[in-house]
Design a protein around this nucleic acid. Structure first.
Length: 931
DNA sequence: GCAAGGTC
């Protein structure tokens, strides 16, 4: 008897049908397993792997003292049946067999599954010959060929698969146990780690970090509309994005009628027909019509099991030659797609389209059977997708006519583009992506049009998008993470572990915490490189350059090193993760609305916010995370029923902060003391009225304050005004401290806070105060001579800069003034515009504008303006006088001399005095200016 | 109770 072992039941059945020829196949169930007999042959299907790798006995207790997570690295492994019924049946039949053929899938895992079957067989029948049939599709042609030329099992290929199994098990199990124990997570709440899942999670976390730290930048786009014979032309500025507002403004202002057509370019664009579906391609297309990855695969599985489509787990995007495409077309003629098939037959392309990947195990996903919408219900949509994709791969490319119109509006270039589908090609049978025409009217070079509408739009650069499931699967494929059958399951696993959530995918706090911890202490497991290295090793095993055992042992050594780093940090890792979980961050009821208060973190800052946000804005600020991450302690405040908070930093004792609300109230007393009208009785009324801080007070409407606390309207106004003053004072002081810290290093006995206290005693409470305070006063606060000087100087610079900015001088010009040595508004105002323009490299018009701004801010009359023309021609006039050099020119500007005329008419004595030029020189050039 | 890979 000849036993044929296939990878799955459905394959066993189909193989039997094909090989039986005219004989009838008898299908029976033996202890729940399908057995197909025909002639003297018997065909049985496995269920993928029917055995699994696991540790030898004695490692089941996670908390065992003698067997800690690290001990799993060197623990022995065994293969244990996971499908005992199938294992038993195979062995029962194998005993009586005189030939056995392994007919599992034609890939690495298939070879391993075959070897597993081989070992089961050998255990009960040491002598029976075992061969191997390899086929890339279960078609009559392929199966007959494969069975007519039986081959041997490739034990090297299978060994490569075994290496992967063991490496995955020891890394996954040991790290999962370690992290879960460190974070005190057990039961159904464990934290898993793995070669595929951890890098996938890290990608999602990394993306979130990019989004969090993204700083949007403004840019400007200019577009215009015009019209020809009633048809609209939309064009955009040739520059595209402007990153400089001044340039955009100039381009906008410079866009004037007429709009001259400078060039009309017509062309064609080929729109390639899509390539055959592999699993990833199918998932992406299904996502476009609303299916999640897991759902799409579930439906595909169902369609496959019922014979409507081919095997849905494949990496292949090239139809193998053995696949009879004509037969598939004839089959489809019996469906409601007959008209589409008709069209494809008439217009069929020479060769079907091809993708980049081919593989030996299965053909691309294609239809295999006839179905009706009534039969399939909801699943029809995906059947239709597979049918239409198949038809599209046999259809001609689509073609677009393209047009580009280049235009010029008084020196500003504009571009309009249009396209029109002239040959729908494959789009006729595959209507899933929209083919939108953008028409442009016919215009000729040299034609003049009118600008109807001109738009300057400010936009902002956007952060990268979060991953959708299908995008993530595509990226996983690019990085080699997971396989066609497992990628969607990995995503589901991350969701069920509560590492990620939402659509598109976002990491949860736990997901972030686990990734951060692994990246800090076991980064190997968070990188896709591990898979790539493993694949290289597997390749080496396949060609016998390395043995399975050496590869696995090397991997064991690496894992030991990872544990060398992990074990000493167990406590820190636990804290890092526990401190991030929802429960650990929840403190108790919000005093304003009663919902939960929670510690929230963003970047380097943390605060306590209300879960009722944005309806409830109550919050308490916390010190930055550099002082430690805030987590709750076990104590609860009797008054407010809130958990106490403590800050935990690496290598430091936890900083117990106590009840955050008590803290807040205590802190506010100090602030309230600075308000002249505040009394203790009022403070009590405020607390009863649920106003907990100075900040709350400034944000409360006077009418609301009256209602909540019973103060009079006039009192309310006064209190709010005073609160604003104090808040302003506090802000200025913190600004001052931040500024001082940059220039005054802390010393023993002189902390930054101590310096600030010294300042307060001297009445220095803002950066402005530093400028006006005396040198000695600064020294009294503990600063050295040098430090006092620097601080005062820098403060002066900063204040001047701020003043100029407030007056409306843009940052770019400010920098230019500064570099040329013009610091304060007064300095700039006192200088002659010609000098400013010359020394700073700012155009005279702009200088004039700035001087007007400064004059009005300083409450002084604006200086006389010099026009650009006057300035430039004057400069040429003066330089044409042989004795006037560039340096002399500057000196003349100082004396207000800007051209020959002013040189002639100015009082020479004044010129000599103000310019610093010699008497002889001045008279000489005056002479020259007469001519 | 751990992984990843098959299959249902």
């Amino acid at each position: 008897m000849h036993l044929i072992i296939a990878e799955k039941n459905i394959a066993a059945n189909r193989i039997a049908q094909i090989l039986s020829g005219k004989d009838k196949v008898s299908a029976k169930k033996e202890s729940g397993v399908n057995v197909y007999t025909f002639g003297e042959k018997t065909s049985v299907g496995l269920r993928g792997h029917v055995v699994e790798v696991d540790f030898v006995e004695g490692y089941t207790n996670w908390r065992s003292e003698e067997r800690p997570p690290r001990s799993l690295i060197d623990a022995g492994t065994i293969k244990r049946p996971t499908e005992p019924a199938i294992v038993k049946l195979i062995q029962k039949i194998a005993k009586k067999a005189n030939r056995i053929t392994i007919a599992t899938d034609f890939d690495t895992e298939g070879e391993l599954i075959g070897k597993e079957a081989y070992e089961l067989v050998r255990a009960v029948n040491p002598k029976v010959p075992v061969d191997r049939a390899r086929f890339s599709a279960i078609t009559r042609e392929e199966i007959n060929r494969a069975f007519s030329e039986p081959a041997e099992i490739d034990f090297d290929l299978a060994a490569a698969g075994e290496a992967r199994q063991v490496v995955d098990l020891i890394w996954g199990a040991s790290l999962t146990r370690f992290i879960s124990l460190a974070a005190k997570r057990g039961g159904g709440n464990i934290l898993s780690v793995g070669r595929v899942q951890s890098p996938t999670l890290a990608m999602i976390v990394d993306r979130e970090r990019e989004i969090e730290s993204f700083i949007p930048e403004p840019y400007w786009e200019i577009s215009l509309t015009s019209e020809k014979d009633g048809e609209i032309i939309e064009a955009r500025h040739a520059e595209g994005r402007f990153t400089d507002k001044t340039l955009a403004d100039a381009a906008y202002a410079g866009t004037k009628d007429p709009l001259l057509v400078t060039e009309v370019k017509e062309g064609k664009r080929v729109d390639r027909a899509p390539t055959p579906f592999d699993t990833t391609g199918f998932i992406v297309a299904a996502a476009r019509i609303g299916y999640s990855a897991a759902n799409a695969m579930r439906v595909a599985e169902e369609l496959y099991m019922n014979g409507f489509i081919s095997y849905p787990r494949t990496d292949n995007t090239i139809y193998p030659p053995s696949l009879n495409l004509d037969n598939i077309l004839s089959t489809l003629e019996k469906t409601r797609f007959a008209p589409d098939v008709e069209w494809v037959k008439k217009n069929r392309r020479k060769k079907p389209t091809e993708g980049k990947k081919s593989s030996t195990d299965h053909p691309p996903i294609h239809p295999t059977g006839v179905a009706t919408p009534e039969q399939l219900g909801e699943n029809w949509k995906l059947y239709e997708l597979v049918v239409r994709r198949f038809l599209a791969t046999l259809s001609p490319d689509a073609e677009w006519a393209t047009m580009r119109i280049n235009m010029d509006a008084s020196g500003q270039g504009y571009i309009a583009t249009g396209s029109r589908l002239i040959d729908a090609g494959w789009r006729t049978v595959y209507p899933y992506s929209e083919a939108k025409d953008t028409f442009l009217p016919v215009v000729k070079k040299g034609e003049r049009l009118k600008i109807q509408d001109l738009n300057l739009e400010e936009k902002q650069t956007q952060p990268p998008p979060r991953y959708s499931q299908s995008k993530l699967i595509q990226v996983m494929e690019e990085l080699g993470l997971g396989t066609k059958s497992t990628r969607h399951e990995v995503i589901q696993k991350l969701i069920s572990r509560k590492y990620i959530e939402g659509n598109p995918l976002r990491p949860t706090l736990v997901g972030k915490a686990v990734t951060d911890s692994l990246e800090a202490h076991a980064s190997t497991i968070t990188r896709p490189d591990m898979t790539q290295k493993l694949e290289q090793s597997m390749e080496a095993i396949k060609v016998r350059h390395q043995s399975r055992d050496v590869v696995v042992d090397d991997s064991r050594k690496m894992l030991h090193q990872v544990f060398n780093e992990l074990e000493p940090n167990q406590a820190v890792i636990g804290q890092e993760i526990m401190g991030q979980t929802d429960e650990e961050l929840t403190l108790g009821p919000c005093p304003v609305c009663g919902k939960d208060l929670r510690i929230r973190r963003k970047g380097g800052s943390q605060f306590i916010g209300c879960n009722g946000y944005p309806d409830c804005t109550f919050n308490i600020s916390l010190p930055g995370t550099m002082w430690g991450s805030a987590i709750r302690t076990k104590k609860v405040c009797d008054i407010h029923n809130l958990y106490h908070v403590s800050l935990i930093a690496k290598g430091a004792r936890p900083w117990e902060m106590g009840c955050p609300l008590c803290q807040l109230i205590e802190q506010q007393k100090e602030h309230y003391a600075k308000m002249p009208s505040m009394t203790e009785a009022l403070q009590k009324k405020f607390l009863d009225g649920k106003i907990f801080s100075l900040y709350d007070l400034t944000r409360t409407d006077p009418a609301v304050l009256v209602k909540r606390t019973g103060v009079t309207g006039k009192q309310a106004d006064t209190l709010i005004r005073e609160a604003n003053d104090v808040l302003d004072f506090i802000r200025k002081r913190s600004e001052c401290k931040k500024f001082m810290k940059q220039f005054v290093p802390p010393k023993r006995g002189r902390s930054h806070s101590k310096v600030m206290n010294g300042f307060a005693e001297c009445g220095i409470n803002s950066i402005g105060d530093i400028v006006t305070s005396s040198h000695d006063l600064l020294k009294k606060s503990g600063l050295s001579d040098e430090e006092a000087k620097t601080l005062k100087n820098e403060a002066g610079l900063l204040i001047a800069k701020q003043q100029l900015k407030d007056m409306g001088i843009p940052a770019i010009s400010l920098k230019k003034y500064h570099e040329a040595g013009f610091i304060t508004p007064e300095q700039i105002f006192a200088s002659h515009p010609a000098i400013l323009s010359h020394k700073c490299g700012i155009s005279i018009d702009t200088v004039n504008k700035h001087l007007t701004l400064i004059a009005s801010a300083l409450n002084k009359p604006a200086p006389e303006k010099i026009s650009k023309k006057q300035f430039e021609s004057g400069r040429e006039e003066l330089l044409s006088i042989p004795d006037i050099s560039e340096t002399a020119l500057l000196k003349l500007y100082q004396a207000g001399i800007i051209d020959k005329k002013s040189l002639r008419t100015a009082n020479p004595v004044g010129v000599i005095k103000n310019s610093g030029l010699s008497k002889d020189m001045v008279y000489k050039i005056r002479e020259a200016a007469q001519g």
